[in-house]
Design a protein around this nucleic acid. Structure first.
Lengths: 361, 361
DNA sequence: CTGTTAGCGCCTTCAG
DNA sequence: CTGAAGGCGCTAACAG
């Protein structure tokens, strides 16, 4: 590595170091360092020579050496299930924008929804000394989850970093973590209420693995709305289907083959709604004339559907931005009052997919 | 930092270091290192004590120190315009999957399409000593671009890293960069030919900034198809519109207001097609009965459109994977034969949005 | 089997 | 204004 030829300045291979630059400029290493930092007096003749050498050798500082020396790595890390999901992508975008606004680089990992992979990713990020580790998306909220998150939060906290939980529940009180959630239950309540207010009484809750917090919370909102309207809950109207548009299509097709005992559908996500819509259309059912349909997420493709989807807006991008902001601004606080919890609002976006149920009930 | 209390093992703040662990286990630092590496004989009694201390102190290695010591940072870096674009997201996913399969962490930056921001990102990534720097997406292929990319490629190459250009042209020959492109021109030719073969003669080329390579190449394919079918090119049938669905909608609405002098539309991307479709539908034009419409990209939401979009499939995810694979496998090669160039194939996916033009021509 | 020594690239004292 | 010395955390050589 560097110049082992004895000849100063004849960089052979590898990146040029301060030493190489110093040799070439005929000065000492600290002088070069000072020219770069610019926060110390250096004779302008010297400075010019150094700057020339810097340019000629195409010098770039070594972040690792810098991180080792003092100021840790200026990085923000995050883990998500899959960047291809539009809602995840929005969160990621928010994180990246806010991080880069603050001069930070981002580390990403995808977990594919596998908790073990997520843990592994966290481990790598811890090794990197990331300033914040942001974990995104729904989980099974069980004991192991809480225990693990608490442990991670504490480890990170102790090493001067911060765990941020985004769109997933806090693992318990007095755990030094930042939690940024959005109002799943409220959004689900509001959108279900729309359907109910329009006169629907048989509303299919379509999609979701009840084990996952997102599904559970949306289901809870659905049930509360039902109860507000005095409509009894019917377990037969809860259809369990994966998050995916293709699966959703198949699932709705099967359901329609079995029965059509509903006039409204609350799809767990916009993508699921898209799949459902296709099955509905193929079955000769018109939305919203025969069946009303709503989604959740308000991702851009929701406006490409015909009819355009009435759905719940979730501030995903803001969630990402907030995660970074809170984690970074909180740095330097002592161990006092370590928890932080933010709940972002959601709201219904009315478009074209809801109408009163058909008369012939 | 670390344990300055004099009391061994009483880690106060900051992450535990090998020294802390060594103190607590009553051994020397290298011994701990050896236990961790596991590639050296250590007495099992000692090993157990060390492992206990490791656990108790919640030790994690410091990547920066490791990177500094020898084997550089095990990271792959990439820059893209915006993760929210489905096609970009697919590339990103391919990169992340392949990188994590090889135990690498990913560094990301978004540029917003601004070359200056992109350059800045590259600089940061160079400082990080990333094993590969992958630049994704369309560019203006001018002299400054080529010069800059060549310079970056050479710098990176010299420091043992690698520049990968993904979905953008090579900056010239004998530049030590890896280029992974896909066949824009061929895809555009094929899909335009579909329209032409169905009998269309007035095909609107809808969307795109001709300055950008992607647009230019797709336009070239369109023109070649025209020429193959003996249809004269008409500049009035080239509508310049941004990549965005919303802009596309507005643009198509305006166009339809002006004239309807076409029976087929080749939208530059699926998102643009979605916007166009909406305007078409609102104008009372049925696709494909009145107008045929095709897109490019074959992203998942293309199947949510009604009718489902006939489009060109682009292997975005594979592009990402290939980028990582080539960059990492090529490491250790000498300076000989440094260029690498891969052109991935594209193909038409026939769905429902193309039909013969209406009879009443 | 284990400890001592040295140095990766950088920056911050401290002396000139 | 500039150089010499030391150390961040880790690992690879060498001793013992």
């Amino acid at each position: 590595m560097t110049t082992q030829t004895g000849q100063p300045g004849g960089a052979a291979t590898g990146r040029a170091t301060l030493k190489d630059v110093a040799h070439r400029a005929g000065v000492s290493v600290p002088t070069v360092s000072r020219v770069i930092a610019g926060n110390y007096p250096v004779a302008s003749a010297t400075r010019r020579r150094v700057e020339k050498a810097l340019r000629e050798l195409d010098y770039v500082a070594n972040t690792h050496a810098r991180a080792l020396r003092g100021h840790g790595a200026q990085t923000v890390a995050f883990v998500l299930k899959d960047v291809r999901g539009p809602s995840f992508a929005e969160v990621a975008h928010g994180i990246e924008e806010e991080a880069s606004r603050r001069g930070r680089l981002c580390l990403v990992c995808v977990s594919g929804g596998d908790p073990a992979r997520e843990l592994e990713a966290v481990h790598l990020m811890r090794q990197q000394g990331a300033e914040a580790v942001i974990l995104i998306g729904s989980v099974r909220d069980d004991e192991p989850y809480r225990r693990q998150m608490s442990a991670i939060a504490r480890s990170l906290h102790q090493s001067g970093s911060r765990l941020v939980l985004c769109g997933r529940p806090a693992p318990g009180d007095s755990v030094p973590a930042t939690v940024v959630e959005y109002d799943n239950e409220g959004g689900a309540h509001a959108i279900t209420s729309r359907l109910l207010a329009a006169g629907h009484r048989r509303v299919l809750f379509f999609g979701g693995d009840a084990e996952l917090t997102t599904s559970a919370e949306r289901l809870a909102g659905y049930r509360r709305a039902l109860s507000d309207f005095g409509v009894p809950f019917d377990a037969a109207l809860v259809e369990k289907v994966p998050f995916d548009r293709g699966e959703a299509y198949l699932s709705m097709r099967a359901r329609l083959h079995r029965d059509r005992d509903f006039t409204g559908v609350f799809a767990l996500t916009d993508a699921v709604a898209a799949g459902a819509l296709r099955a509905l259309a193929e079955a000769g059912l018109s939305v919203p004339r025969d069946v009303s349909l709503v989604g959740f997420d308000d991702v851009p493709p929701a406006t490409d559907l015909r009819p355009q989807l009435t759905t719940v807006h979730v501030p995903y991008e803001e969630m990402g931005r907030t995660a970074v902001r809170l984690a970074l601004d909180r740095r330097g606080d002592g161990p006092g009052v370590p928890e932080q919890h933010v709940l972002l609002g959601t709201h219904v976006v009315v478009r074209e997919s809801v109408a009163p149920p058909p008369k012939a009930d």
